[in-house]
Simulated assay, not measured.
Amino acid sequence: MEYELSTPLTDEDINKLQVGDTVYLSGKIFTARDSAHKRIIESGAPMDLNGVVLFHAGPIIKQKDDKYEIVAVGPTTSMRMNPYEADVLDMGVKAVIGKGGMDEKTQEALVRNNAVFLTAVGGCAALYVNGINEVNSVKWLDLGMPEAIWELDVKRFGPLIVTMDSNNENLYKKNK
């Protein structure tokens, strides 16, 4: 199935999704990599995480005056976030976008929190940037541009594939 969903995501949105489905997102998504995940665990999130979509990405940003423009944004390897992701999901996150899948602890947290892992295709950074309307804000820029949390306003951002769902299904395990 193919779904167009608006953020923040709800349990009703997640209940529809199964591994193999294609998803397009509109609304707000937030980038977050290793350093941001670590700081969220240690200090708390700089935004309300309920219903949030986190994108494991370090965008290439161009700054002009006080405005930021995304030049390219593609997924980074998600397993780097394994030490933190289950705890971050427990804070209310409903979807994580990345590549390569995640560990069993994260899968259990997806089930426990009725959340999903969405795979973005690596090498499609120029394609994904087309779904971004603008950068709304940036948090924790002291971590550096790739590690900061970028709040992105998106429209039909995707395609994204449900590869780990809230029913304990995992496309990566099925296809091994």
Rank of each mutant, 00 (worst) to 15 (best):
E147H: 05
A126F: 11
N133K: 14
D34P: 04
G74E: 02
S78H: 08
M91H: 09
E69A: 15
M102K: 09
I29H: 07
Y68C: 02
D48W: 10
L141S: 13
A120C: 07
N50T: 14
V129H: 09
E69D: 14
L54N: 01
G131T: 07
M81D: 03
D65E: 07
C124Q: 07
S35K: 14
D142E: 10
R39I: 06
I41D: 00
N50G: 12
A126T: 12
L49Y: 11
R39F: 10
G44E: 06
D153V: 08
G123I: 12
S26A: 02
A115Y: 05
I40S: 04
E85Q: 04
I40Y: 04
I70F: 05
E108T: 11
N114R: 14
T31P: 07
S137L: 10
W140L: 15
A148Y: 01
E69R: 14
E147F: 00
I40A: 03
V73L: 09
E42V: 13
L49Q: 07
M145H: 14
E147P: 03
M79S: 15
I61L: 08
D90I: 13
T106F: 12
E108C: 08
V111G: 02
K139I: 15
I61R: 02
S137D: 08
A109W: 04
K28C: 09
K67V: 15
N133V: 14
V135G: 01
E42C: 10
A32S: 14
V121N: 12
Q107S: 10
V93L: 06
Y128L: 01
D87F: 11
N130I: 12
D66M: 06
L110C: 05
A115N: 06
E42N: 12
M102C: 13
D103P: 04
S78G: 02
G92M: 05
E134R: 15
F55S: 03
M79L: 12
D103H: 08
Y84G: 07
A57T: 03
R112V: 12
S26Y: 01
A125N: 00
G122C: 03
V121L: 15
A57M: 01
M102R: 10
Y68S: 03
V138L: 06
E85A: 02
V73E: 00
F55P: 00
D66A: 07
N133L: 14
I41G: 01
K67N: 14
L152W: 08
L110F: 04
K94M: 04
F30D: 01
G123H: 06
P75V: 10
A72L: 13
A57I: 06
K38F: 09
A95I: 01
L143H: 08
V135H: 00
Y68T: 01
H37D: 03
G131Q: 05
K67M: 15
A109T: 08
F55Q: 02
R39L: 13
L25W: 11
G51V: 04
N133H: 14
A86S: 05
A109K: 08
D34S: 01
Y128D: 00
A95P: 00
K38D: 06
N50M: 15
F117A: 08
T106Y: 12
N113G: 06
C124K: 09
D103C: 11
K28H: 11
F30P: 00
A109M: 07
V93I: 13
I97F: 09
A95R: 03
N133C: 11
D87T: 12
V23D: 02
K64W: 08
W140K: 12
S43N: 10
I40R: 05
E134A: 11
T76K: 10
R39Y: 10
K64V: 15
V116T: 04
